[in-house]
Amino acid sequence: MTHPELKADAAGSAGRIYQEAIKVLANAATGHGALVAPDGRAFIDNPLCGDCVEMEVNVAGSRIAALAHQVKGCLLCRAAASVIGKRAVGARAEEVEQISAGVSAMLEQQAPPPAGWHELSAFAPVHGHRSRYDCVRLPFQALLAALRAARPRD
């Protein structure tokens, strides 16, 4: 199924969500790959558009020591995973939760991007395309799930 906005004029609003910054992030694929011995792993897909993210993390002292992802999906999903690859190492799970909430606030309420994650501002034009919010959120959900999987059992 085509997202309705993709049928709009490519130079118009649909063109903006695929702006150059998004393409650069997506093609950089920062963090793409797999870890040798991940502490946590998660696979999440969106059954409506087919995008899927496999996320692996290593955790040391409650912080992300290393991560790797493999994304099959649209530019937005690949670009969001790339930002995670660039920024998430060193973060604690609670910080990732805050960032993830910040991404939602940015998409839904046009809030400024979370502090220290300025690359996320490239996703601001997605605000006008509700059906694409999950494309940006999917890699964050995968990262949170991978961190939950890495948590030692009580």
Binding site: M1, P47, L48, G50, K72
Partner: peptide
């Protein structure tokens, strides 16, 4: 007479 396979990762469809 064809063996038909449909591929789609969009599980909703």
């Amino acid at each position: 007479g064809f063996d038909v396979i449909v591929i789609d990762p969009r599980r909703a469809f």
